[in-house]
């Protein structure tokens, strides 16, 4: 479970949010929407343990991120979280398979198991025959499939997707959103989708809107 309580974050004199509360159960897929500059990225950073709150707690799977050191949070993120970015951010110098296998490599998973799981994940995202390709040989939709595979291969408890379809056409976007939804459900992970797109938000189970006043449910 992800539990956020009394979360407060300030940048100098500016308060981004104050006393924010949020609870998401495993297997739940939630969309967070909001205007640009309202603090969506800050919230993601805090949830990912990439930034620390000024007050409040973030507890994922029983671990309080706020009490951990940066290195401890990083190792926790390595094993418990997966990320999908708008600009894909796959490493150009690694093959598709190597990109997908990165989280397993960081977790020191044995080579054979790593290769097997990578192949299985590539098959799951429809890229079984592209493992040896380099990112430059893939289309935008395929690159985002690689990113989704990378985000899920280590079976994370929390998947954070930041506008994952922003660089894709509607058809490819729909495919990716469906893939994300199915994958999160299959892994019984917590999914958080940050998006401006109402269509994308509709693919989730719950939609939250972040405003200056805090988070509020807008639709199911």
């Amino acid at each position: 479970m992800l539990s956020v309580t009394q979360l407060t974050k300030r940048y100098g004199a500016r308060t981004v949010f104050d006393n924010l509360d949020l609870t998401i159960q495993p297997g739940e897929y939630v969309a967070i929407t909001g205007e640009s500059g309202v603090g969506k990225s800050t919230l993601l950073n805090l949830l990912a343990g990439l930034d620390v709150p000024d007050a409040g707690r973030i507890v994922l799977d029983g671990a309080d991120l706020g009490t951990q050191t940066d290195d401890a949070r990083t190792r926790f993120r390595r094993s418990h979280m997966g990320f999908v970015f708008q600009a894909f951010h796959v490493l150009p110098h690694l093959t598709v398979a190597a990109n997908v296998a990165l989280p397993l490599l960081l977790q020191k998973v044995a080579t054979n198991e790593r290769l097997e799981r990578t192949q299985a994940m590539l098959a799951a995202v429809g890229l079984a025959d592209r493992g040896a390709s380099f990112p430059r040989e893939l289309s935008g939709g395929e690159l985002q499939r690689v990113a989704v595979a990378r985000a899920l291969i280590h079976r994370p408890k929390l998947v954070l997707a930041d506008e994952p379809t922003g660089n894709l056409d509607p058809e490819r976007a729909a495919e990716i959103l469906q893939l994300l939804k199915d994958s999160i459900a299959r892994e019984h992970a917590i999914g958080i989708l940050v998006t401006h797109s109402a269509l994308a938000a509709q693919t989730t189970q719950r939609v939250l809107r972040l405003t200056r006043d805090g988070l509020r449910d807008v639709a199911a």
Binding site: A48, D71, R77, R78, M81, F83, F85, H89, L91, L102
Partner: peptide, 15 residues
């Protein structure tokens, strides 16, 4: 920078 930013997200420590 972006590559390192992504690796930080994936769980590579600063060290």
């Amino acid at each position: 920078k972006k590559e390192f930013g992504m690796l930080r997200h994936l769980g590579l420590t600063r060290g």
